[in-house]
């Protein structure tokens, strides 16, 4: 072994030892505690930073989760129950399971049913046009059609339908983060429970005007006739300010209200088509008995589905 090798070993070793020594002293002297749980929880969270939980980002939500004792009030809508369970497991705290929800659009005021009465000039965003006035149509409750909700959706769960001028929600992509609900200046987007086959029945209108005026501004507006309220077997429909509202908890999705609504402002989604019934009735009169059986079977089926 030559001197050179020896020196190099000596030098490096002494440097290394000095470095270790200094770092050790410094790290002891300037020690700052950070709860390691925060990083762990943050790892579990989806990291979408959508703010649907009410915190500005996943990291700060993690901090909140770690620092509050009772986390039953806190919920990550994107990750859903699964994530919350994992979080609870990490933290050793309890969580309350929540029903999954999905966003629905409570307006059907497409271009052809809701005539334009004025023309808006200015920045094409709902927030600004809502500030300036009540919209290009005579309905001051419905969709403004400038797509702020679409812009705010981080999950590609919405798009603007060119034809109707209304946003469309892609249920499969919706994480129910609530960003669109927050964004809409008209509050026409609602979070409603999501079930297996995604069956929903709800009033697609928020127009509080009296019947005639509402109808004039939009042909599919709820006119407050209360027929649905009368027909509902579960008292799930309530009238307020000339407007019907279907309580998602009480509703059993029987769809009786859908049929009685004179303006078709109650929306049903993803139910098997009803056409079969009518077509069959008209065409085949001879085999009434058979058909009746069929109908019974059909309706039973749809009930069990619901």
């Amino acid at each position: 072994m030559t001197d050179s090798v020896l020196y190099s070993v000596l030098l490096l070793v002494s440097l290394g030892v000095i470095a270790a020594l200094v770092l050790y002293v410094v790290s002891k002297k300037f020690y700052v505690y950070e709860n390691p749980l925060i990083a762990e929880v943050d790892e579990v969270l989806p990291g979408a930073n959508c703010a649907g939980c009410g915190s500005p980002g996943c990291k700060s939500f993690a901090e909140r989760l770690v620092n509050t004792d009772d986390i039953s009030e806190l919920f990550c809508p994107v990750g859903g129950n699964d994530v919350m369970k994992q979080v609870a497991a990490i933290l050793g705290k309890e969580v309350v399971e929540r029903d999954p929800t999905v966003a629905v659009l409570r307006c059907q005021g497409s271009c052809d049913v809701r005539p334009k009465t004025t023309e808006y000039q200015g920045p094409r965003t709902c927030a600004i046009s809502a500030m300036v006035y009540s919209g290009e149509t005579d309905c001051q409750y419905g969709c403004l059609g400038d797509g702020d909700c679409v812009k705010v959706c981080k999950f590609d769960a919405m798009y603007m339908d060119e034809k109707t001028g209304l946003p469309v929600i892609i249920t499969d992509n919706c994480t129910s983060c609530g960003a669109c609900v927050e964004e809409c200046p008209r509050d026409i987007i609602e979070m409603r429970p999501r079930n297996k086959r995604d069956l929903k029945v709800f009033v697609g209108c928020l127009n509080e005007d009296k019947g005639g005026i509402a109808k004039k501004s939009c042909s599919v507006a709820c006119i407050g006739c209360a027929k649905c309220e009368d027909v509902c077997p579960k008292d799930a429909i309530a009238m307020l300010n000339n407007l019907a509202y279907i309580d998602p908890v009480l509703c059993t999705l029987c769809r009786k209200c859908v049929d009685v609504c004179p303006t078709h402002s109650i929306i049903e989604t993803n139910f098997p088509p009803k056409k079969v019934k009518k077509v069959v009735e008209k065409k085949v009169e001879v085999k009434v008995a058979v058909i009746k059986e069929h109908i019974v079977a059909e309706s039973k089926k749809s009930k069990t589905d619901a």
Binding site: L11, L12, L15, V22, L23, V26, S27
Partner: peptide, 21 residues
């Protein structure tokens, strides 16, 4: 190697100190 070692130790020291100060 010696330079980088010195610099690394130095930076880590600054970091620890800054975190506190």
């Amino acid at each position: 190697i010696t330079f980088i070692l010195v610099i690394a130790a130095l930076v880590q020291m600054v970091e620890i100190i800054l975190k506190k100060v």
